[in-house]
């Protein structure tokens, strides 16, 4: 589980770099379906947190 968590963390960190798109911070970017392309990166970043969080929480035992 820990391996999977770290794997997803690395993927997620890569997304951060790409989604923030620091190199094009000041520029307007390509528009796809009326939405700027960097929004898709932001959305991917958000959705990639689902498996990251899933693996983070699932390596611990439940307590009742």
């Amino acid at each position: 589980m820990k391996k999977k968590f770290f794997f997803w963390s690395i993927i997620w960190s890569a997304y951060i770099l790409l989604a923030f798109d620091f190199w094009n911070w000041e520029k307007t970017t390509k528009i796809i379906f009326g939405i700027p392309s960097w929004i898709y990166w932001d959305a991917l970043l958000v959705f990639s947190l689902v498996p990251v969080l899933f693996f983070l929480v699932s390596h611990e035992d439940d307590q009742a």
């Binding site: 958000v46 689902v50 611990e60 439940d62």
Partner: peptide
């Protein structure tokens, strides 16, 4: 929360809703 499992479920589901709902 009933147990930590309930908290865990709501934690990992949260970004899923946010990604859709905020657009």
């Amino acid at each position: 929360a009933k147990n930590t499992r309930a908290l865990k479920t709501s934690v990992w589901l949260y970004p899923f809703l946010v990604g859709f709902l905020f657009l």
